[in-house]
Write a protein that binds this DNA or RNA. Structure first.
Length: 398
DNA sequence: GACCCGTGGGG
DNA sequence: TCCCCAAGGGT
């Protein structure tokens, strides 16, 4: 019974489709008839499969598609990816989130070039050694690209199997065992994709479309009427809110001061405006001008005078997975005296320093988190508006 | 096993 | 507005 894939259900109900052979036949036929036409399904070239699987981690198919197409045009091969710098890679990933995926993809590409002769590992165990490839992705890539008979258990598969066998909260090893017994030995890649696609399109988290399901006749949860509550879902804990004062400092040439975040961790390697965290109630401690001065000193930006606060920009809210951020940006305009003008725009100490004056056209080439992109647009809009007003005034006077 | 790591769409 | 969640991995 243990290895019979649920054919005996509590000794009461014999489920026909729980016979692995019949289950495979029914689901693969359904897959062949309904499979979506996705860009990474054009062929099974390993690099293409690899990139798609990384992009699809915790990401919807519809979201990933445009990124995938652009990526393949820009970095068509492992070598092409290994050749570019990390900033270009992050730029191509901008807006997709979980940026460590992009950094790991890039690291892996270089590792493959330098240690593996430019050839991707061809089995799941070796694939799993690359950064960014875990249990699921190793199985998915190996089965799709190389035809290895291994399972690939993602969130979809977990849900589908939980319902098929009416499991409340199966452990990872239980699922791996169940999934392993079911994999079609002749079409492992198609089988894994069929299972995932069923979960994404039919066996959905809420309101599953059981009437359209090719294997509903063998579904234990359906028989028990428990499909809506399998697997059990846990409440997501409430997340804290963090408030930031954001300093948008403009030099006389109209460039804005930006800093690069540390290479790892949250939004690692992306650019942002200097900011200062407030206290839990969202109150500022010292005065904004004071903070601005202090922060610029920390960043080792040499300025001939203190910036003049010019206007408060609209608040920007952003929800991360484990906290909410509220950014309160203030625009500081840097004015220079006649004497200072001769010195040119304020200089930044070192070239390697992760701090830069960024002109609007340059900002388009930097990888920015979504929130910072919004703040940048707000600041640009204000400055453009002011320039127009100045033009109108001087015209009026002339 | 718990926690960290983004973002956008849908109910 | 809020909550849910989506082809997970690293530490």
């Amino acid at each position: 019974m243990a290895n019979d894939a649920g054919a005996v259900y509590l000794g009461r109900r014999m489920t026909t489709t729980a016979d692995p052979r019949r289950l495979r036949k029914l689901l693969l036929e359904h897959y062949d008839a309904h499979r979506r036409d996705l860009p990474w399904r054009k062929n099974q070239e390993p690099y293409r499969v690899w990139v798609s699987e990384i992009m699809l981690q915790q990401t919807r198919v519809e979201t990933a598609i445009p990124y995938y197409n652009r990526w393949m045009e820009r970095f068509p091969t492992v070598e092409a990816l290994a050749d570019v710098d990390e900033e270009s890679v992050l730029k191509a990933w901008e807006g997709l989130g979980y940026y460590s995926r992009a950094r790991n993809l890039h690291r892996s590409a270089r590792l493959v070039r330098e240690r593996l002769g430019g050839v991707l590992p061809e089995d799941s165990q070796s694939l799993k050694k690359l950064p960014g490839i875990g249990e699921y992705s190793a199985g998915a890539i190996a089965s799709i690209a190389y035809g290895e008979v291994v399972p690939a258990v993602d969130g979809n598969v977990r849900r589908v199997l939980s319902r098929l066998f009416d499991l409340e909260d199966p452990t990872a090893s239980t699922l791996r065992d169940r999934a392993g017994e079911l994999v079609d030995p002749d079409r492992p890649g198609d089988w894994n994709q069929a299972l995932m696609e069923l979960g994404a399109t039919v066996c959905t988290p809420r309101a599953p479309r059981c009437t359209e399901c090719p294997v509903s006749e063998g579904c234990c949860a359906r028989a028990e009427g428990t499909q809506e509550s399998r697997p059990i879902l846990k409440r997501r804990p409430k997340v804290p809110t963090v408030f930031y004062d954001v300093l948008v400092v403009a030099n006389p040439v109209g460039e804005l001061l930006m800093v690069r975040r540390p290479p790892d961790g949250l939004l690692g390697g992306l650019w942002e405006f200097p900011s200062v965290e407030r206290d839990g109630e969202g109150r500022s401690g010292r005065s904004l001008d004071d903070q601005c001065r202090k922060r610029l000193e920390e960043l080792a930006v040499r300025l001939p005078a203190h910036p003049v606060r010019s206007s408060v920009l609209p608040e920007v809210r952003h929800a991360f997975t484990h906290f909410k951020a509220v950014y309160s940006p203030t625009l500081f305009d840097y004015t220079q005296s006649r004497d200072e003008e001769a010195m040119g725009p304020p200089q930044i100490e070192s070239r390697d320093h992760p701090v830069r004056w960024v002109a609007p056209y340059q900002a388009e080439q930097l990888p920015l988190p979504v929130s910072q992109r919004r703040i940048f647009e707000l600041a640009r809009a204000v400055r453009v508006e002011r320039a127009q007003i100045r033009t109108l005034c001087s015209d009026g006077l002339a």
